[in-house]
Amino acid sequence: MTEEIVPAAPPRHGVLKLFATQIELRMLLLTLAVMLVLAISSPYFRTLNNLLNAMDQSVVVGLVALGQTLVILIGGIDLAVGSLVGVTGIVLGLCFPSLGLYGAVAACLVTGAVAGTISGAITTFGRVAPFVVTLGMMSIGRSLAYVLSGATSISAIPPALGDLSSLTIFGVPLNFTLLIIVYLLAWWFLSRAKGGRTLYAIGSNNAAARVAGLSISIWSVLAYTISGLMAAVSAIFLTSRVLSIDPLAGTGLELDSIAAVVIGGASLFGGRGSIIGTLFGVFIMVFIRNGLNLLGVSPYWQGTAIGSIIIAAVLLERIVSSRARR
């Protein structure tokens, strides 16, 4: 009804409107607020050393959360990522003697991608709920990590792998730089590539995506493949930090990564979310853990703090975004 439009109210406050419509900006603001509070309460938080430490801590969960974002965007969930970090790390450690550094890294990545593809194929073609499939895969992954390692940690890691975590570029850790680069690639992919639009379409309305002629089966599986692959990448960075890998590695990462995605504004029903939001979600969680440690809060209380933050952030997001849509 073109004729009956009441003159649209001009955007009253340009900046406010921008914040109301852009979830990335809201998340940036929230991250800065968290940093500000922590910087005021703990003098050590303000030091460069601690900032570098926080960057380092965000790499492992950040890589896993990237894959998790893609899966959640299509309306799925990947509970297996934590145990995949464990099993792919063990594969990495076991393959060094026979395959060398690059061969072992390749074997680790292939393991992760194959495991993810299996989860994706079963949910997509077997029409089993992703929660169930990845729950099973989570149990299988952890069990294989124990079986393959003989339930002991592997410390025979070539020191060259440690460069990933120890080198810096203009003072910024190499691993953190790589994290930012993969996030930028993912952002570019999700916002501007056909495959990215397809992932959003699948989560928004699967039947309509099919009718619109998009390759929904391929992309539904690929989301899980990438998630498994990112778990393996994460295992490599984790191993490089301590030059040792343990079958227990990655325990709890599935929940941390889901938390980061949800704090970052994604909907668990799929179709809505942002990769940059997830990155800020990771930062918020890392800063809060780090800050609570510095403030000497008992580690037992950290779960309560993180849990409250998850609920509060999602509640806040609902309120703000429903206001914005009015």
Partner: peptide, 28 residues
């Protein structure tokens, strides 16, 4: 059921079938 993408804009709903043709290089 199998028509609109409810979370999307009108423009995105129109162009979804033609994304391959709307690319410049690899990007939409």
């Amino acid at each position: 059921t199998d028509g609109v993408f409810p979370l999307w804009s009108i423009a995105e709903n129109i162009t979804i079938r033609s994304l391959a043709a709307l690319r410049r290089g690899m990007l939409i």
